[in-house]
C-alpha cells in the first residue's frame, strides 16, 4: 500500500474511532398501558385513568446520554417536550425523573444525583451489576441486538427491600457499554431497557456532535451509598398501614 493511501485509511479509521469517543444518544420512554375493565371498582378505574394520562406526559420526555472518553452522563432534557408542559401533573413527572446519572468506566464509579428532601449523591460501582446474556435476538432499526437480564437490589414503599428484574436489549454493532439510568457494562450499547412498567428506547444516535460534549461530574449533594440511601426510605406494611394511609 502506497504511503498516501495508508495515511488516508488511517485518517478515516481513527476519525471513526474518535467519533465514537464522544457523542450524544437520546432516549425516550414508553409506559405499559393500564387497561380498565368493567368489573373494576370505581376507585381502580379512576386510578387507571389518572395513571394513563400521566403516562402520556412521561412518554413525551427526552433523555440525553452524553459520553466522552470514559465518562458519561444520563439526564432528563428539561428544555425539550412536545407541548405537554401545561398538562396537569407535568411538574410532578419532571420531578420524578430529575435524577442525574454519572458513569466513569476507568474508575468504575457510578453516581446518581437525586433530589428528595435534600440532594444526595448515591455512589456505587460498575462492578456491582452482573448481566446474563441470552440467545434471544431481535433487530432494532437496522441493528442486531441481544437480550440480557439482571436483577438489582431495590426498595419500595410497599415491597421494602426486594430484587427487581431488569431486561436490556444491547447491540454489539455499537461498541459502547452504556445505557439509560447508568445501566451498562454490556458488550454493546443498550437500545432498550425495561424497568418495571417503563421501557427506555433510543430515539437518536449522534456520534459526531457539533457542540462540545463536556461531561460534568455531579458534586453537589451528600455522598451516600445505595444501602444507606435505602435505609432512609420508609416501608409501609399492613401493620403500620394506618400511619401512612387513611389514618
Amino acid at each position: 500500500m502506497r504511503p498516501i493511501y495508508l495515511f488516508i485509511f488511517c485518517f478515516f479509521y481513527f476519525s471513526a474511532i474518535d467519533a465514537q469517543n464522544k457523542g450524544n444518544i437520546v432516549y425516550r420512554i414508553v409506559t405499559d398501558e393500564l387497561k380498565s375493565q368493567e368489573n373494576h371498582s370505581q376507585a381502580k378505574q379512576s386510578f387507571y385513568k389518572l395513571m394513563n394520562s400521566m403516562s402520556l406526559i412521561r412518554d413525551s420526555l427526552y433523555f440525553n446520554l452524553d459520553f466522552k472518553d470514559s465518562e458519561s452522563l444520563f439526564y432528563l432534557d428539561k428544555g425539550k417536550n412536545v407541548g405537554m408542559s401545561n398538562e396537569r401533573g407535568y411538574n410532578s413527572i419532571i420531578k420524578s425523573f430529575s435524577s442525574v446519572f454519572y458513569r466513569n468506566n476507568d474508575t468504575k464509579e457510578l453516581i446518581e444525583q437525586v433530589s428528595t428532601d435534600r440532594i444526595y449523591l448515591i455512589t456505587s460501582s460498575t462492578k456491582d451489576l452482573k448481566w446474563e446474556i441470552t440467545n434471544e435476538e431481535k433487530k432494532i432499526n437496522q441493528y442486531l441486538c441481544y437480550k440480557a437480564v439482571t436483577t438489582i437490589k431495590a426498595r419500595s414503599l410497599t415491597k421494602g427491600d426486594h430484587f427487581k428484574k431488569i431486561q436490556a436489549w444491547f447491540c454489539p454493532e455499537i461498541p459502547l457499554n452504556l445505557g439509560p439510568n447508568n445501566f451498562g457494562g454490556l458488550p454493546g450499547l443498550i437500545f432498550e431497557l425495561k424497568i418495571g412498567m417503563l421501557t427506555y428506547y433510543i430515539e437518536s444516535l449522534n456520534f459526531n456532535p457539533k457542540a462540545g460534549t463536556e461531561i460534568v461530574k455531579p458534586t453537589k449533594g451528600k455522598e451516600i451509598t445505595r444501602d444507606e440511601y435505602f435505609s432512609l426510605k420508609p416501608v409501609i406494611t399492613k401493620e403500620n398501614f394506618k400511619e401512612y394511609i387513611g389514618g
Binding site: T31, L34, S41, Q42, A43, K44, S46, F47, L50, M51, M54, S55, R58, S92, K95, S96, F97, T116, S156, L157, T158, K159, G196, M197, L198, K233, P234, I236, Y244, I245, G246
Partner: peptide, 23 residues
C-alpha cells in the same frame, strides 16, 4: 406498587395510596 413501577416518588405514591384507599 403500580405507581412505584411507573417511577413516581414516595410522596406521590403515598398520596395516591391515600386517595385510592378513601375511594
Amino acid at each position: 406498587e403500580v405507581a412505584d413501577d411507573q417511577g413516581f416518588s414516595e410522596a406521590q405514591v403515598t398520596c395516591l395510596g391515600n386517595v385510592f384507599y378513601a375511594g
